[in-house]
Simulated scan of single mutants.
Amino acid sequence: MPVLAAPSAPTHELPGARFTALATPSRGSTDTSVWQVEIDPGAPATPHSVTREEVFVVLEGTARVRLGESEQLAGPGAAIVVPAGVPFALAATGPAPLRAVCLLPVGGQAQLPGGEPFTPPWAR
């Protein structure tokens, strides 16, 4: 199926964040998982790492990005490239929610500090 209609509502929610699966194996993609994430201002960042390179493209708002020991801001149009194995955290800064599209190769997993790798439900 070459065209996948966007879901009418987020497919997964966590406190302060909503995820909408756009192209994932459960929706018909085979090589790349794509989702939209919306993070509320003030929602705490969740430090984690990934087993494959992950890319975010900021659509709206401003992201506070921590990669390893480095911290930067990213605004609309910016691409955030998260290397595999590097501690990472993303938060909305400013008055508006952060909205971004995220891409992760199928099979890529997230890992919380001290935890086992897992596939986020919005990437399945």
Rank of each mutant, 00 (worst) to 15 (best):
Q36P: 00
E38Q: 13
E69D: 15
S33R: 07
S29E: 13
P7R: 12
T11L: 07
T46F: 07
E53H: 02
F56L: 15
S33D: 04
S29A: 15
A43W: 08
P7L: 07
A6Q: 13
L67H: 04
L59D: 05
S8V: 07
V50A: 01
P76K: 00
A17E: 13
A79C: 14
P87E: 08
A63H: 06
A5W: 06
R52M: 00
G16R: 05
H48L: 14
D40T: 07
A17Q: 04
Q36R: 15
T24Y: 12
T30E: 11
H48I: 07
G42E: 03
G68H: 07
A21G: 10
V57I: 14
V65S: 06
A89Q: 11
S8G: 12
F19G: 05
G85W: 13
V58Y: 01
L59G: 10
V81Q: 10
E69R: 14
R27Y: 05
V55R: 14
D40M: 14
F56K: 05
V65Q: 03
E69V: 11
S49M: 04
Q36E: 15
V50G: 01
A78N: 11
G75H: 10
V82E: 11
L67T: 00
D31Q: 15
A9F: 10
V55P: 02
L22V: 08
A17R: 13
E69P: 00
P83Y: 09
P44R: 10
T62F: 04
A63W: 02
P25M: 12
P87Y: 11
P15F: 12
A17S: 13
T51A: 03
S33W: 00
P10Y: 09
A79K: 02
T46C: 05
V81E: 12
F88V: 06
T24G: 03
